[in-house]
Amino acid sequence: MTVLEQLNGGGVYLICGSIVAFIAVVCIIFMIRAWRAGKALGMDVTRMKRAVTASATFSVLPSVGILLGVIALSGSLGVPWPWLRLSVIGALHYETQVADAAAEQLGVSLGSGSMTAQAFPTIALLMSICIMWGMILSVLFNKKYLHKLQQGEKTGERKGGGFGDRAMTAMFIGMVSAYIGSYVGEFVSGNKKLFSFSGSWTPLVVVAAAALAMAVFTYFSEKKHMEWLDNFSIAGSMLIGMLAAVLIGR
């Protein structure tokens, strides 16, 4: 039995499925409580219904996009683990990058063949740990933070604007640059020989194909007012980039 077969086994489905089920129950409890509170506070039921319907329809397309992400990760991590991660906590760009960084530390790569029984628990643990801060901060500071905001002014809707947004963009620019730089280095100075041009160029083609696909998605969503396409842009571009790798065949 291969590791991937084990990762797609009933036991792993059961573990991941139970956690997803637990979180579904949490959502239902929060929903019922909010609904009751709304009624007790004299809010208009039709407006609450509208909020629920609008949110449900709004979420359908992004969820299909997230499902494509599960497919993208299933080749290296099996189906149930990406299913859990993307159902309840993560986001595709986060999961992929963290999984890859953990794989790098272990000297394996996120390809279908190289996953080992030793590597998987480590990768999975890192994926869990790196994204838990939102929850930890909520547990520790949500109440205090909101209380403080309430006491202060009630206007501050956009906290952390200004440089915060730009720093986030810059951080992602830096992250992307490191990876693209490594693909260029891998090709140009491949097999540890400077300027040998003997490394693999597949990642560079994949980067180009995915970036081009993203440009096309962005063009249609911005210029042709097909905003719904945004829901598929990242996952769709990734699948197109991956398709390029299949066409090259290596």
């Binding site: 080749g75 890859d100 990876y179 991956m242």
Partner: peptide, 8 residues
């Protein structure tokens, strides 16, 4: 699947 990361 070996090229998920470059695609991202």
């Amino acid at each position: 699947f070996a090229n998920v990361v470059p695609a991202l």
